[in-house]
Design a protein around this nucleic acid. Sequence first.
DNA 1: ATCCACCACTGACAATTGTCACGGTCGGCT
DNA 2: AGCCGACCGTGACAATTGTCAGTGGTGGAT
Lengths: 202, 202
Amino acid sequence: MIRILLAEDQAMMRGALAVLLGLEDDLEVVAQVGTGTEIVPTALEVRPDVALLDIELPGISGLEAARELTELVPECRVMILTTLSRPGYVREAMAAGAVGFLVKDGPVEELADAIRRVLRGETVLDPDLAAATLRAVANPLTARERDVLAASEDGSSIADIAGRLFLSPSTVRNYLSAAIGKTGTRNKTEAALTARRNGWLA
Amino acid sequence: MIRILLAEDQAMMRGALAVLLGLEDDLEVVAQVGTGTEIVPTALEVRPDVALLDIELPGISGLEAARELTELVPECRVMILTTLSRPGYVREAMAAGAVGFLVKDGPVEELADAIRRVLRGETVLDPDLAAATLRAVANPLTARERDVLAASEDGSSIADIAGRLFLSPSTVRNYLSAAIGKTGTRNKTEAALTARRNGWLA
DNA sequence: ATCCACCACTGACAATTGTCACGGTCGGCT
DNA sequence: AGCCGACCGTGACAATTGTCAGTGGTGGAT
């Protein structure tokens, strides 16, 4: 019996997946959580064979949880199941020790099978996705550039960002200018948007 | 037997829901579509009792499809099943003739039951959601203000927007200024963000 | 007939933003 | 020690953006 931990914030999706996986003879969902914060404590308690994690979760992200899991519960295989496949995500997931990466666009049928395959030691990764990841450029932004971009995502003015990050407005403008250059965009809004889309933030 | 049409863009969610609903004795998913464009033609063909529609779909939105459905397939009850409950969405869904509005945050168990209830003639709407909708201000934006806001969502410059909408840059700036005032924000990025969050766009 | 809201535009002004050139600190690397 | 990159800052300038006061045109309501 393969014991599964399921982390997904949308209750309906989580419930539906749990029922679905429960229908398989050899699979058993032993724990369901709706936030990133619960993942590691729950895994330590129930010791699942596989953790199926969404990335966007309240609390800590599925990627962070994956990093902690591979360290604290090494016998547990980590699979990422997410809506969007930003190039940076796949890279980070693999770096975090995940052995599977599925997108919610795929057919349900492949899910149970993917779980069985990672348990046999295989790595599950869509070939197209892998190719796209390799093709995509690695994150060109420095830590500070990421900070100011993330802070500008809500449309804040430069003065706001400066205040929030305890920097001088001029400094913020310089980082933004650099980020705009590196992203090949024309203003901070576009820069933040494409950085987010490429998975270069958070 | 209650015949259901399911419209949802995420294949895995769609598949999981179909399996789940299929487990119920009195429910039957007779059609599944992944785009908004397919909804009406498919409904005309299979004549379902209930259409379960997501809002964000490729092609036309679930809300538009709802409007057409209530006109072209009047015997079909329309239910909206969506991720986020922007205040404007509920209002629009009801105006479009929907008799149910569910969020994907809720438990799966309530889904099948909600379908049975709308078929008995009831309206399914979370009381909290209804209250929030009534509390929320109605869309204060004019059609043109919505246009320029929508066009500015990707971080385009005013000149870009003007070109795309065949307006003079000064005109665009005036609409944006008005929208900024009405949304109580401080620049076009914030204005577009809050308008989107309130369901005032598209 | 008059009012009103929305539409489209202009021009002027101030504020914000983006670019550039510059100086300096710090830690890691060779 | 010297070099490099990331970091933090300043000041100046041009471009973009936001505000305001106007000019008209249209169509629906009273």
